[in-house]
Write a protein that binds this DNA or RNA. Structure first.
Length: 415
RNA sequence: GCGACCAUAGCUCAGUUGGUUAGAGCGCCGGUUUGUGGUACCGGAGGUCGCGGGUUCGAGCCCCGUUGGUCGCCCCA
């Protein structure tokens, strides 16, 4: 091995905001995905796969060409054919595009679920990465409030099965239909204009770009003005009111706890009616664990037919961080310590036989033979098999789960 | 885009007002001890102190820059 330091090559680093996962966290991540896959079947959501890359227009059009999100926070590049391509920053727009492209209107209402990596060029912080992963569930082509309610019950059951529902609250709001929303927005602008002098600098900028966002400002200076702003309730049409009532009574019927948050908003115009977030205070500033809402205007904005739709997404990393340590059992069934290399062949045969019978098994056969037992004992497993020779006599010792040691005994005897 | 804190062995960290050859625990490798045994002891490998400049007789420590990490702001599709 050369120790010539001048020949040292620069060590590549991981791209900023990406993560490598091993062991515990990777297990928790997989546990979240497995649980999601199981629960989405219970609700009849079809598995769907959509591309990681899309034409930039798919996201630019769905997000409104000029927003900061589009201009600064997407991973976009020109491919070799000169087409502008973007790494998906969210699932919904790509799924909406697929719905149009493939004529999935024929399957409406279509319930779909997917999960995978997403990419956003943002400053990393707790629970926020540049490559991150989400679970996603959508119902396309349904204008029924029952679809909203079902998605929420689904989400609630998922969090319960993950064991993280404790300390997570479902917060719910309605943005009304287009008429309600426009009227509310006008009233908010009027209210904030009247208090222009008291607003923070950030909120003054919001007033021009995205006035609804002042409502959930974190700046204490803004809170009195935001809190005294009118709720949407006074502006809801009768239809919008009925819709929200149907969603909440659906939740009550399914015994899903929820809280009204009249300050919960969405920035983009195609969001209608239901908006919701499951929030926690256990993840620092990134409190939203699962969020979504109804986006009846999106598919039309992408050039498709007017299509009502609703969905949610949840950050897998954030969910995985909340999963309790003891939920994940990644123990092996068996670990075999080979205390004498003369018994290696028997040990290998035993190992193969156990694995063939469906038992997760590992072998320790390297390093000092005398230390292999200790090494094996440190590997998490339900049972330990020690194979060796003492005083010229071979032995097989077992300890741990008694049912498993019986199995191992039978397996070895059968060899 | 803005701010704060941080970067020393594979990992977690200590390192005094700047001063000999930079340490510990864990992990890894070897040896001894124990022998139905997860013990204890001994030894070993492993560091140009993130990187690049500067100040100084002398820098892991002070200054500037840079890269990365963490947390927060902004943004949140």
């Amino acid at each position: 091995m050369s120790k010539d330091k001048s020949a040292k090559i620069p060590t590549p680093q991981a791209v900023r905001g990406t993560q490598d996962m091993l062991g515990d966290f990777a297990d928790r991540f997989a546990h979240v995905v497995d649980t999601f896959e199981r629960v989405r079947r219970l609700y009849g959501y079809k598995r769907i796969e959509v591309p990681v890359i899309e034409p930039t227009a798919v996201f630019a059009r769905s997000l409104g060409e000029t927003t900061d999100v589009v201009s600064k926070e997407m991973y976009s590049f020109d491919d070799r054919g000169g087409e502008s391509i973007t790494l998906r920053p969210e699932f919904t727009a790509g799924i909406a595009r697929a719905y149009i492209t493939n004529g999935w209107q024929q399957f409406a209402p279509l319930k779909v679920a997917t999960h995978g990596p997403l990419f956003r060029y943002e400053r990393p912080q707790k629970g926020r990465y540049r490559q991150f992963h989400q679970l996603d569930a959508e119902v396309l082509g349904s204008d029924s409030p029952l679809a909203d309610a079902e998605l929420l019950v689904f989400a609630d059951q998922l969090l319960k099965e993950l064991g993280i529902a404790e300390g997570v609250t479902l917060t719910l709001n309605t943005l009304g239909d287009a008429a309600s929303r426009d009227a509310w927005r006008a009233a908010l602008v009027e209210h904030f204009e009247a208090h222009r002098g008291e607003l923070s600098e950030d909120s003054l900028a919001r007033l021009d770009k995205n006035p609804l966002r002042i409502l959930d400002s974190k700046d204490p200076q803004d809170r009195p003005i935001a809190d005294s702003a009118p709720d949407i309730d006074a502006f809801l049409t009768a239809e919008a009111q009925d819709f929200f009532g149907a969603v909440t009574s659906g939740l009550d019927a399914a015994d899903v706890a929820w809280e009204r948050n009249a300050r919960l908003v969405r920035g983009l115009d195609y969001y209608r009616h239901t908006a919701f977030e499951f929030v926690t205070d256990r993840l620092g500033a990134q409190g939203t664990v699962l969020g979504g809402g109804r986006y009846d205007g999106l598919i039309e904005a992408l050039g498709g037919p007017p299509t009502a739709a609703v969905g949610w997404a949840a950050g897998i990393e954030r969910l995985a961080m909340l999963v309790a340590d003891d939920v994940i059992d990644c123990r092996l069934d068996f670990v075999i310590a080979v205390e004498d290399d003369g018994q290696l062949k028997l040990a290998m045969k035993t190992l193969a036989a156990l694995r063939n019978r469906g038992f997760a098994s590992e072998i320790v056969a390297s390093g000092s033979p005398r230390k292999r037992f200790d090494k094996a004992a440190k590997i998490p497993a339900r049972a330990l098999i020690a194979i060796g020779t003492r005083d010229g006599v071979s032995y097989t010792n077992m300890r741990g789960d008694s049912e498993l040691t019986i199995v191992a005994d039978q397996t070895i005897r059968a060899l």
